[in-house]
């Protein structure tokens, strides 16, 4: 299947008795910007490590760019730019020297163009001015930017970015979003692990959601949202009353706040909800039927609990 940039079959990783990644079948189409979501500890980074051949799966396998991994790692990985679990560089080398080292390690990189490519990558992440500074003096966001620059040293067909916006300022976050858009426009596939759902809504074409090691959803973004059940939202100063009406009508997952009540519509017609509210004398200030936000979908898929899955 060469129309998939990443394809895994039953990818599983066990650490001792814990199953960190459980039979994951990833399918990232070429050209997609794939948002890889999931709560802390749900197995995103572990999956990414397996994809890149850093750890070997307990079971299952995968292809990158149409070639089986890890057998073809030497052929495939030069086309893959990666950011895995935060930046990692030599503290006593400058940012530029760190990139020089990575470029020198790459047998497919041309020595002649090295300087120009490094400068271009630094420029792309806005780090040119700090390129000569020692890495240990970098701020969190500068370190993160350098890691992104390292992924961009060569033209890539696939970028695997594990939380690239971690620690970035709002401008940086926006630049990364723009960058991801540019890379996708240039034809690259991007696998983007992130916790920023607003990011995902703006840049991703596809979404995969991990929960306790399992891939619980994988769809084009638009489909994920339209599949999700629409909710009725009532703006009112009597939210308790409104919630009672919604409940009697058979709406589910009722939520109340100070100025609104909402519930999942299910089979109930919206006009019937409005009629009932008026009939029961609830003062309705506004009414809307909304597709749930990505955040709602995410919470529905992965649960409300704050505790990480151990």
């Amino acid at each position: 299947m060469t129309d998939l940039a990443v394809a895994s079959q039953g990818l599983t990783k066990r650490f001792g008795s814990q199953v960190a990644v459980d039979a994951v079948d990833l399918a990232v189409p070429r050209g997609a910007v794939y948002g890889f979501l999931g709560p802390n500890g749900s197995g995103k980074t572990t999956t990414i490590r397996m994809l890149l051949g850093l750890i070997s799966p307990t079971a299952g396998g995968h292809d990158l760019l149409g070639a089986a991994m890890p057998d073809h790692a030497a052929d495939v990985l030069p086309h893959v730019g990666a950011l895995v679990e935060g930046p990692g560089f030599h503290p006593y080398l400058s940012g530029r020297d760190n990139l020089r080292r990575l470029d020198a390690a790459d047998r497919t990189a041309e020595a002649r163009t090295s300087g120009a490519r490094i400068d271009a990558a630094l420029d792309r992440v806005g780090l040119s001015a700090a390129a000569g500074k020692r890495y240990r003096l970098y701020s969190l966001g500068m370190k993160q930017r350098l890691a992104i620059a390292a992924a961009l040293l060569q033209p890539r067909q696939l970028l695997v970015l594990d939380e690239p916006t971690n620690g970035l300022d709002p401008q940086g976050t926006r630049e990364v979003r723009t960058l991801v858009g540019q890379l996708a426009a240039e034809g690259a596939t991007v696998l983007l692990s992130t916790h920023l759902l607003a990011e995902v809504e703006q840049v991703c074409t596809h979404v995969g959601v991990m929960h306790r090691g399992r891939l619980v959803a994988q769809e084009p973004l638009a489909q994920l949202r339209s599949d999700a059940a629409p909710r009725a939202r009532v703006l009112t100063d009597q939210p308790a009353e409104a919630a009672r009406v919604l409940r009697t009508l058979g709406l589910t997952e009722i939520a109340e706040s100070a100025s609104e009540a909402s519930g999942q519509l299910g089979a109930v017609a919206p006009e019937k909800v409005v009629a009932s509210l008026v009939h029961d004398g609830v003062a309705v200030r506004g009414f809307a039927v909304e597709a749930p936000s990505l955040e709602d979908v995410f919470v529905r898929l992965t649960g409300r609990g704050f505790d990480v899955s151990g």
């Binding site: 790692a73 030497a74 990985l77 679990e85 990692g88 560089f89 503290p91 990575l102």
Partner: peptide, 14 residues
């Protein structure tokens, strides 16, 4: 320890 190993391996360095 510095986290540079994973980046060398993904370059890739065999």
């Amino acid at each position: 320890n510095q986290g540079t190993l994973r980046y060398l391996l993904t370059v890739p360095v065999g």
